[in-house]
Amino acid sequence: MAGTESTAPKLSEDDPIKVLFDMASYWATIWSFIALCLWFEHQILKRLDIESGSLQVAILLVSTPAIFLATVPRIQKNPKARLILERARYVVVLVAAALLGAYLHANHKDDSYENALRDGAVLACSKIAACKAAAIDYANTRE
């Protein structure tokens, strides 16, 4: 007889997929926090009218690690902050996946046979006056 237990694989702490996800989400969260700090500091420098690029870079190179090193111990000590960080890791991974998907969609080059056939049909239709007029009429009456 079959048991009543679930047949779904159980994730253990030694599961390589879980370890990989934890490591990737951890580092993605750290780099997202650093990027957020850099962006925030850059906005502050713009508001302070500090125009010199080398001065901005010097300030950012000193202040970002200082903010990061001051924040991390506080997050580690506060259980509520650690819980928020734990949940934020999943949001960071979802945002990264959405941005990667948008980037890949924007830079996708369709070299399929169907795409080449469609391009050829459009080119051929543009050279035939009756076809071009019918296509324009169709485009104008489409809802």
Rank of each mutant, 00 (worst) to 15 (best):
Q43Y: 09
E41Q: 09
S54T: 00
V91Y: 00
N78C: 14
L36K: 01
L83K: 15
S32T: 05
F68W: 13
K46H: 06
I84W: 06
L83T: 11
L60T: 00
L45R: 09
I44M: 06
P79H: 10
S63C: 15
W31I: 03
K46A: 06
A96F: 04
V62Y: 05
C37Q: 07
R82G: 07
T64K: 00
Q56A: 03
V91Q: 04
Q43I: 00
P73S: 15
V62D: 06
R74H: 02
W39V: 01
V95D: 15
D49Q: 11
S52D: 14
T71G: 10
I30A: 00
I50L: 15
L36R: 09
I44V: 14
E41G: 01
K80E: 03
A88F: 15
D49R: 13
E51P: 02
I44K: 10
Q43R: 08
L36P: 00
E41I: 09
L48I: 05
R87D: 05
L36H: 03
V95E: 15
S52P: 00
L61D: 06
I50Y: 05
L38K: 05
F68D: 06
T71V: 10
H42M: 09
A35T: 11
V72I: 08
W31C: 03
E86I: 07
I30N: 02
R89M: 13
P65N: 13
E51T: 07
Q56D: 09
T64V: 14
S63A: 14
F68A: 04
A58P: 05
A96Y: 07
Q43C: 09
V62H: 01
A70T: 09
Q43K: 12
I30Q: 07
A81P: 05
I34T: 09
L94N: 10
F68P: 05
I34N: 03
V91K: 07
L45I: 06
V57G: 00
P65C: 14
L38V: 08
I67K: 15
S54A: 04
W39M: 03
A81W: 07
A81K: 11
